[in-house]
Design a protein around this nucleic acid. Structure first.
Lengths: 210, 210
DNA sequence: CGGCCTAGCTAATAGACATTAGCCACATGA
DNA sequence: TCATGTGGCTAATGTCTATTAGCTAGGCCG
C-alpha cells in the first residue's frame, strides 16, 4: 500500500464546536442533548434530562431552543454537512483515483472517530426525524454515498480497481466507518491515526487496488 | 481467493420461524412486533400498532404476551442465540484457519441478510432493553465478537494472517455484516449469495490471508 | 343442555412528557 | 432610580401510552 496522506486535521464542524453567533448556553444545551441522545436515544431522552445536564429545568430550555425536534435536526443536518465538506476537501486536489479513495476513506473514518457522538446519532436517529428534516438528511446521505460509489466506479473504469460490484464495495467502506463510531473510544488501545490508516488500507484492499 | 463453502443453508432460527410449542397467534404477534420495531423503533411502536398489525386491539395482546419489553427481549436474545449457533456450526469441522474464517464470515453475512429485521433490531435496540435482558444480550454479543477475534488471532499465530490488530480486523468484519442488515433487500440488485461470497472475500483480504 | 376456557372488547388507571402560561429576580443602561 | 429584557422557576395543559379490570360471545367437553 502507498503512504497515508499527511493531512490529519481536515475534519471539523461537529455539533459541539462553537459557532459564531450562537450563544454559549445554546451550545451547551446542544452538546448535552448530543450526549444524551447517544446514550439513551432521542425518544428516551426527556427535556428534563437535557435541562438537568446543563443545570436548569426542562421548561427553561425553551428560552434557548425552540423544540426537542429542532435539537435533533440541527445535530443531524450539521453532521451530514460536515461529513460532505470533509469528503470534498479530502478528495480535492488528490492525484489519481487510488489516492482519492484513500483520502476519502481517511476523512470518513476520522470523522466517525473524532465526532463519534454526532455520527452515532446521525446514523441511528433518522427514524426520529420529522419532515422536512428527514428528507434533508436522507438527501445528504445519498449524496455522500454517491460520492464514494463514483470514486470506486472511476477506479474500475480506469482499470485500477477490480470489484464485482462498485455499490457493494462502497457500502462496505461506508459501513466500516460507521462501525468506528460505535466502538471507538479516545482512551482505547488504538489511536485515531492507527485506525484511520488501517481502515484506509482495508478500503484499498477491498477494491482490489492495483 | 479459494472457493466459497458449498454450505448455503446453515442459517435458521429467526424470530419469525415457527417454534414447536408456541401458539401461532403469539408467533404472528412477534413477527408484527419485529417488523414495527424495525420500521419505527421500539419506543415509537405502540401496543396498539402491534395489535392493529394482527387485527386486534392493543390490550388484547396481553392474552398472548406478557409485556412489550418481553417481546423485544425474546427477539433480541433469540437473535443472538441463532447467530452464535450459526457461527459454531459454520466453524465446526472446517479445515484450516482461513477456511474457518471464511465459513464464519459467510454465516455472519448470510444471517444478517436473511434475517435482516432481527439483526437490525438486535443491533439498534440494546438501549431499550431492561435488565436482566440487557446483560443477557451483551454477554452473547461479547462471546460472538470473541469468536471472531480468536479466529483472527489463530490465523496470525499460525502465520497465515497478517494484521496490525486482530481486534480491529474482527471489528471490521463484524461491522461489514451489520451493515448488510441495514441496506439488504431481497429484491435488490445483488443476490444473497453474491453478497455473502463477496464479503467473505473481503474478510480474507482484510486479514491479509496468505 | 350447561359450564367453562379462550380470546376478544371497552373503559379505567396511572404515569410520562413536550410544551405553554404566568410569575419573579436580577442586571443593565438611560 | 427605574424601565426593560433576560433567563430562570413552578404550575398547568393536553396528549399519549402501557397495563389492568371487568365484561362477553362463542366454542368445546361433559
Amino acid at each position: 500500500m502507498s503512504q497515508p496522506s499527511a493531512r490529519r486535521d481536515a475534519v471539523a464542524g461537529g455539533a459541539g464546536d462553537s459557532v459564531a453567533g450562537v450563544p454559549p448556553r445554546a451550545q451547551a444545551i446542544r452538546a448535552a442533548a448530543l450526549e444524551l441522545f447517544t446514550q439513551r436515544g432521542y425518544q428516551a431522552t426527556t427535556m428534563a434530562d437535557i435541562g438537568a445536564a446543563v443545570g436548569i429545568r426542562g421548561p427553561s430550555l425553551y428560552k434557548h431552543v425552540s423544540s426537542k425536534q429542532e435539537l435533533l435536526a440541527q445535530i443531524m443536518i450539521g453532521t451530514m454537512d460536515a461529513l460532505l465538506a470533509a469528503h470534498r476537501t479530502a478528495v480535492a486536489g488528490a492525484a489519481g483515483v487510488a489516492e482519492r479513495l484513500r483520502r476519502a476513506t481517511e476523512a470518513h473514518v476520522r470523522y466517525h472517530a473524532r465526532h463519534r457522538l454526532e455520527a452515532f446519532v446521525g446514523n441511528r436517529e433518522i427514524r426520529s426525524l420529522e419532515e422536512p428534516h428527514s428528507t434533508a438528511v436522507l438527501d445528504r446521505r445519498d449524496a455522500y454515498e454517491k460520492g464514494f460509489r463514483e470514486l470506486v466506479e472511476a477506479g474500475v473504469a480506469a482499470g485500477r480497481f477490480h470489484v464485482a460490484s462498485a455499490r457493494l464495495a462502497s457500502y462496505a467502506i461506508l459501513d466500516l466507518g460507521m462501525g468506528v463510531a460505535v466502538w471507538y473510544r479516545e482512551d482505547g488501545e488504538l489511536t485515531e491515526d492507527q485506525i484511520v490508516y488501517q481502515y484506509s488500507d482495508f478500503a484499498l484492499l477491498l477494491v482490489g487496488a492495483s
